[in-house]
Simulated assay, not measured.
Amino acid sequence: MTDAAAPSRNKVISNPYIHRLQRRHFLLFDIAPIIGTVAALALLPVLPFGATEIALLAGMWLVSGLGITVGYHRLFTHRTFRATPFAESMLAITGSMAGQGGVVSWVAIHRRHHEFSDRDGDPHSPNLSGDGLRGVLRGLVHSHFLWMRRHEYPNIAHYAPDLLRNRRLVNVSRHYYWWFALGVAVPTVVGGLVHLSWQGALAGLLWGGFVRVFLLEHIIWAINSFLHRWGSKPYESRENSRNGAVFSLLTFGESWHNNHHAFPSSPNFGLQWYRPDPGYWLIRGLSAVGLVSDLKNPAAEQIAAKRIRTDERKAAA
């Protein structure tokens, strides 16, 4: 059978079973962290909150956040560098702890986003809900949060065949719920051991678990929503991606979003040394110890060729 005669593969799957799974994930991993964060704040007068809880929150946020940006995004979705099997597994596991879905599903969704960015087919564009204030607000709420309740599920056989051929990664993805549970159990156990009480364990669960997931999720989601509407656009790209320089450290470099869409195969989202990109700092560190290699940074002339001149930016504005 020739390629022309081969049957076309469906790019998305939409059926009641998939939508039930999406609603369940939305409740467990998107709504529950909100409830847990409210509980953590309400229980401040009676539960420990000090250096231990702050360290657990910051430490687990750093581990799971870098797992998302370096692992899920730059390595598995865009293949911006190569990693050893050990590094691949560790990045997939720590990314799973963020509660944003198994690595194979996440990659399929994000590749579809790049294919249809800010056009029909984009799972989470803020720019497809009409004009005016109402359209803007509806688009922002959809792209930031509500799209996850129910959406067309990208066919992983179409969007992530490379990951499906990697049995080790498929196995990590299948155990996504267990890796997430591990990411919640670690701060719970540490909090209990430090304080030698169940109150300490509960505080560790709330701050290193629920609050950490809540903060990380909304930081990452803000890139989908706000940075597809507002910010600077120094490089040519067909969609409405923007940079948010002020958030670069908080987002592990992900807020250099226009840079990323202009050069999706680059592991360095900042592109220049003076633009902070903690995700790239980790990649450079892993490269120095031989865990990653083949960093596909664009050449200076490639970057210059895509730069939008000042007069063009003013005209676009």
Rank of each mutant, 00 (worst) to 15 (best):
E152N: 12
N258Y: 07
D30C: 10
S8F: 12
A160H: 08
L202A: 13
L41K: 00
A40N: 01
F29G: 09
N243S: 11
A304H: 04
M148A: 14
A185M: 15
L205P: 03
A83E: 04
W61T: 04
P187N: 05
E88Q: 15
T77S: 15
A92P: 12
K296T: 02
G135Y: 03
K306P: 13
L56S: 06
M97L: 01
N240H: 15
E88M: 15
H158R: 13
F116Y: 11
V63F: 00
G200E: 07
L27N: 09
S237G: 13
G200T: 13
L56K: 04
R275W: 04
F252Y: 14
L28N: 14
G95C: 14
A300Y: 00
W281R: 02
F263P: 02
L66H: 00
A181C: 12
A5N: 08
S125M: 01
A6G: 02
A288H: 13
H261Y: 10
S125G: 02
A32R: 10
H257W: 08
H260E: 11
A32Q: 08
F145Y: 15
G208C: 05
G36H: 05
A87P: 04
Q302H: 08
E301N: 08
E239L: 01
D162A: 13
L164Y: 08
G290F: 06
S241C: 11
M1A: 14
Q199P: 03
E53A: 06
G200H: 10
I109G: 12
H113T: 09
D120F: 11
L41T: 09
M90C: 14
R119W: 00
M60Q: 02
H195M: 08
L27F: 09
L66I: 03
I303D: 01
W256D: 01
Q100G: 07
I303H: 07
P33E: 02
M1K: 05
M60Y: 00
V184M: 15
N268K: 04
I54W: 06
A305E: 10
I219R: 10
W198N: 03
P276T: 13
I18M: 10
S8L: 15
T37Y: 09
R119A: 04
V170R: 14
L47N: 03
V104C: 07
V189K: 07
H218K: 12
R307E: 14
I93Y: 02
I68R: 00
A288M: 15
S8Q: 14
L21E: 09
R313F: 00
A42M: 12
V70C: 14
G65C: 00
I13T: 08
G130T: 08
Q100I: 06
N127P: 04
R138H: 13
H195K: 06
H228L: 09
R23V: 12
L282Y: 05
V103W: 07
V38W: 00
G270C: 05
N10Y: 06
S8Y: 10
I308Q: 04
P234V: 05
A181R: 08
L249A: 15
W207P: 12
T37Q: 13
K314E: 08
S225E: 11
A299V: 01
A51L: 14
R309C: 01
E254D: 12
L271F: 03
D277M: 05
L146T: 15
E254I: 00
L206S: 06
P264E: 09
V211F: 13
I35W: 11
I220W: 07
A108T: 01
E88D: 09
